[in-house]
Amino acid sequence: MSDCIAHMAPEPVFAEPWHAQIFAVTVALNEAGRFDWPDWAARFSATLKRNGLDHALDGGDDYFHAWLETLEALLAEQGTALPDDVRGLHQAWEEAYLTTPHGQPVHLRDS
């Protein structure tokens, strides 16, 4: 706690690129009317509470893990992004990275 609160140096807005991406996806979907913000906050809060049961969340990486988990569940429930499709594309992206020569742009094979 003290460490975390005593930390006064300026920190980057987003510590990892994927934090920024998931934040932007969520804001964009909200602006497009796919869900309203109070509903989002209630779901996100429930995830944080659940994830914080076994250890105190530090508000960094674990915060965005909870964010991602919440968005995945919401989109699955809506039928917007089904878990099987997400898993398939996750694997496709992983393969794309592992088979693209270093330094070249990574694209999905079948897109």
Binding site: H90, W93, Y97
Partner: peptide, 20 residues
Amino acid sequence: PHALLPPEPALRVKALETIL
């Protein structure tokens, strides 16, 4: 030999982005 593999959650985010 290959591109740097992003961390697991980053790939999950890319998967969502692709679908959406």
